[in-house]
Design a protein around this nucleic acid. Structure first.
Length: 551
RNA sequence: GGUCUGUUGGUGAAGUGGCUUAACACACCACCCUCUCAAGGUGGCAUUCACGGGUUCGAACCCCGUACAGACUACCA
């Protein structure tokens, strides 16, 4: 087809395009940023929620943009209406907000490079495609679904590359007259790329994470504009990232295979190539195999899961940072007082293969997070959590606020704070003894030992020896002395040396007191608990124990 | 079938030709400390980097082949 014919065709196909490429190039000028500033983007489909993989991606985007003094924007990729869910966009913003990921530009906050919703950019895509037709790099294809399917079957059978290319692209060289005839018959069509590639030649792409990758050149006449005039991902990606001046396309590794196509589109359109960074998938062990974390099968793939089970968002972010850069973990260990934002993330410390999602590690990070928070902070955050997920407990927390904070503060001052909570929902169980109402209701459900302890001895100790106003050391000396006076060894060591001389040792006395007071045989520092409770409540609990077990 | 990518302990991984008798962290086990637990301390946990071959004085690191795994192969993104 001659140039003037192609021009005619372009006008027939796109009679209503108001602006040409030059208009858009001028409308969206180069961004004025300092050297090295990265422009990144997150492009979710409006499916209603964010899953772990895309959270990880958007986390990368925001981190790299922020630390380079660049821009991170959010673009809704809704070119496929089937994927859209009602209020899907709101869901995405909500999930991102929960993780403190705030785009500098988006359909919500605006920006100079909008619209930030692809379905509102149709005219832009079409105007570039119109130009591609004039240049002979695109053509209307009238093949039916059946035709394409039968070609594919044939190709699969003869074990050659699948797709519309070369001699399989039957509409590639239609004459203007033939096209006009089909148009007159109202035949449906898509616009395909007239690929200039030669699969015998190689293209090399440098990926920021994976390094050099070589491919055969792309030679398939990929669909650019669908039947409804809407762009495919490939076209939209190339045009948007050019016009929005993305410097680093950070996306999932499922896209590397289409890199040769994208490179070709950038070349044909005369655009400067962005840098690419393809991130490894987050995987999970399943039936002995390893697979990508799936939002359908895995609860933990949904970002809202962490909020529901009560894992602090900060801990999830820390975990994301540790899988983002392999050297982050060690840095954080040595710089625990700093925020993760002070760490400089780089592409070359990112995983190339898949990363197994390690809940154990997340738990540990979470425990460390809690151990560093003051009792009051833990209280407030837990209260907020329970207000959403456990109203009854929220009420109890509020009624027992000052005691509760004291309990949460036990052993906090030491250089080795306790690490016994990994999620907000653990507080209720771990501190079941802290609130009378809960203690008496669920009492001893946690104590499973068969040992019965003598209440007379313990009551005697509390009434005659226990002094709440002494130091921890004095308290322990007192209880040692009491043990000795009653035929118990003052230390387990002495008891072990000659067990026949004693009925037991201090540990047994402590254990008895612990079980009576807390309803469990393991607890934080006993004296601290007893001090907070006060003598009266301790005695009440001893009576309660007696009622329940010794009658 | 084709095209890409990967394969270091139970897990995440460091490692880019001699400093590696393979870091660090999580998990697990043992011991110590100790009134219990948690924390902390000490030690154990790959004699070897999927396998085979090659290059080299020397390889987890470079090359080739094989095996296995993953991604992609849509008018979905």
């Amino acid at each position: 087809m001659e140039l003037n014919e192609r021009k005619e065709l372009a006008e027939i196909l796109f009679p209503n395009i108001k602006h040409d490429r030059a208009y858009y190039e001028e409308k969206y000028p180069e961004r004025n940023l300092k050297d090295g500033a990265m422009v990144t983007r997150f492009g979710p489909s409006p499916t209603g929620f964010v899953h772990m993989g895309s959270l990880f991606g958007s986390f990368c985007d925001s981190v790299f943009a922020r630390q380079s003094g660049g821009v991170f924007y959010l673009r809704i990729e809704d070119t496929d209406q089937k994927r859209s869910v009602e209020n899907g966009v709101e869901g995405i913003f909500k999930d991102l907000e929960a993780f403190d990921i705030k785009p500098d530009e988006s359909s919500v906050v605006g920006g100079n490079y909008g619209p930030y919703i692809q379905s509102e950019r149709t005219e832009i895509y079409q105007s570039y495609v119109k130009d591609l037709i004039v240049q002979g790099y695109a053509y209307p294809c009238f093949m039916s679904e059946e035709e394409i399917n039968s070609i594919r079957e044939e190709q699969e059978l003869s074990k050659i590359k699948v797709g519309v290319y070369g001699s399989f692209a039957v509409d590639r060289d239609l004459s203007l007259e033939e096209i006009k005839e089909r148009l007159a018959k109202k035949m449906e069509y898509v616009i395909r790329l007239k690929s200039p590639g030669d699969s015998k030649k190689e293209v090399e792409v440098v990926d920021c994470i994976k390094g050099k990758i070589k491919f055969p050149e792309h030679d398939i006449d990929t669909v650019l504009l669908k039947k409804d005039g809407t762009p495919t991902y490939h076209l939209a990606h190339v045009i948007d990232d050019h016009l929005m001046h993305t410097t680093h396309v950070i996306r999932g590794d499922e896209w590397v295979a289409s890199l040769p196509l994208h490179v070709q589109l950038f070349q044909i359109l005369g655009f400067k190539m962005p840098n690419y960074a393809h991130t490894a998938p987050i995987t999970k062990k399943d039936d002995g195999g390893i697979r990508k974390l799936s939002k359908r099968k895995d609860a933990e793939a949904k970002v809202s899961y962490y909020e529901e089970v009560g894992i602090p968002i900060e801990a999830v972010k820390l975990y994301l940072a540790t899988i983002l850069n392999s050297n982050f973990e060690e840095w954080y260990l040595n710089n625990s007082d700093k925020s993760f934002e002070e760490f400089t993330f780089t592409f070359d410390k990112m995983a190339i293969g898949g990363t197994l999602f390690d809940l154990d590690k997340l738990n540990n990070i979470s425990k460390t997070y809690f151990s560093r928070k003051s009792g009051e902070e833990v209280f407030n955050e837990t209260l907020e959590y329970t207000k959403k997920f456990d109203l009854e407990y929220a009420r109890l927390l509020e009624e027992n606020k000052s005691d509760m904070i004291k309990f949460l503060n036990i052993e906090k001052d030491s250089s080795r704070p306790r690490k016994d909570i990994s999620k907000y929902s653990d507080v209720k169980e771990e501190f079941s003894y802290a609130i009378d109402e809960l203690f008496y209701k669920e009492n001893y459900s946690k104590y499973t030992g068969d040992k019965k302890y003598s209440t007379t001895l313990i009551r005697d100790y509390v009434e005659s020896v226990l002094d709440l106003d002494v130091s921890n050391e004095e308290w322990f000396n007192d209880i040692k002395k009491f043990s000795l006076d009653n035929g118990y060894a003052a230390s387990p060591k002495e008891y072990k040396q000659d067990s026949s001389k004693y009925k037991g040792h201090v540990g047994d006395i402590c254990e008895a007191l612990r079980v009576m007071v807390t309803g469990r045989d393991k607890s934080p520092d006993l004296f601290s608990i007893v001090k907070i409770l006060g003598k009266d409540r301790v005695l009440e609990r001893i009576n309660f124990y007696e009622e329940k077990y010794n009658k």
